[in-house]
Amino acid sequence: MNAKPAIIHSSAAASSERDRLAAAVVSYGDAVGPFDALMRGYMMRTFAPWFADGACLQVGCAHGDQTSLLLERYDDLTVLEPDPTFIGHTRERLGDRAVFVEALLEDYETDRRFDTIVLSHVLEHVTDPVAALRRLGELLASDGRLYVVVPNAEAPSRRIAVKMGLFSHLEGLSAADEAAGHRRVYRLDTLQRDVAAAGLGAEHSGGILYKPLANFQFDALIGGPLISHDFMEACYALGQERPSECASIFVVAKAAT
């Protein structure tokens, strides 16, 4: 594998976007929280029935938790990440087992086509989500699948936050959302709308993990007597029945034929 990430230089507009993302990275800290780490595993479990062999592209690696799980499944993994801090965190954990490309999706040009593309908790950050999805569709192999995951506006924890007055409506952005660089919050129908507008065909959709508490509340309680492994497993099972009340929602899409 490459010793250093390939760096693709960006336009002036894209450079401004990279600066915006670099500021947002500060809100993530030096490590992922317990809840987010568990969510990565639940995402992999959810998608396992549809994963296919071949080349995999991960768009956005953060601290590398999901990257490490993808490396358990894929020998041929390319990681596209615009922030050098996140690339550094991930390479420190995983070495050169993946090919790292430091670039925004908008600037990424390659002749390769991928059998699997994972876009997890990235679409809410981008300037133009439909254009981003359309570009990813162009990077898919003929039978490849794109896995799009975003936070869910309709999670019970978010409904409680609205009742508490923390923001005015379900699709409003909290201070934490804005600090993390989020531009929007999705419902399952609006996610499906953007996937369709990008010319992609949705094969599957649903939710991952019923979410009665906010992330910071889960982080404080996971591992103690109140949030056990069995409790989390029950939330995962319930989320399969009630996708609109999950922490994350997803669409598995293929390029339109």
Rank of each mutant, 00 (worst) to 15 (best):
A3W: 00
A3H: 10
A3F: 05
P5D: 01
I8P: 01
I8K: 09
S10F: 10
S11Y: 09
A13C: 01
S15K: 14
S16F: 10
R18S: 04
D19Q: 15
D19G: 08
D19A: 13
R20H: 05
A22F: 02
A22S: 13
A31G: 03
A31Y: 05
G33R: 09
G33L: 09
A37I: 13
A37V: 15
A37K: 14
A37P: 04
M44N: 05
A48M: 09
F51H: 02
A55P: 01
C56M: 04
Q58L: 08
Q58W: 00
A62N: 14
R73H: 11
Y74N: 04
D76H: 13
L77Q: 05
T78F: 06
T78S: 07
L80C: 10
L80P: 01
E81V: 02
E81R: 02
P84L: 06
G88D: 04
G88E: 07
R91Q: 12
D96Q: 12
R97I: 10
E102W: 02
A103Y: 02
L105V: 10
T110C: 08
D111K: 13
D111E: 15
R112Y: 09
R112V: 08
R113Y: 00
I117V: 14
L119Q: 01
H121P: 01
V122S: 00
E124C: 09
H125L: 11
V126T: 04
V126H: 05
T127I: 02
T127H: 06
V130W: 03
A131V: 09
A132T: 11
R135C: 06
R135K: 15
E138H: 11
L139C: 04
L140M: 11
S142W: 05
S142I: 11
G144K: 06
N152V: 00
N152K: 04
E154G: 02
A155R: 11
P156Y: 09
A161V: 11
A161G: 13
V162M: 14
G165M: 05
L166M: 14
F167C: 12
S168T: 14
S168E: 14
H169K: 15
L170Q: 05
E171H: 14
E171L: 08
L173Y: 07
E178Q: 14
E178A: 15
A179P: 08
A179G: 12
G181F: 05
H182C: 10
Y186M: 10
L188I: 12
D189H: 08
Q192M: 08
A197G: 03
G199Q: 08
G199C: 10
L200I: 03
G201W: 07
A202H: 03
G206Q: 10
L209T: 15
Y210E: 08
Y210N: 02
K211H: 10
K211W: 06
K211Y: 05
L213Y: 12
Q217R: 05
D219C: 06
L221Y: 06
G223Y: 07
G223S: 08
G224A: 14
G224K: 14
I227Y: 00
I227E: 00
S228D: 07
D230F: 02
A237V: 07
L238I: 02
E241D: 12
R242C: 13
C246P: 01
C246M: 08
A247M: 15
I249E: 03
F250P: 08
V252H: 09
V252W: 04
V252N: 07
T257L: 15
T257Q: 13
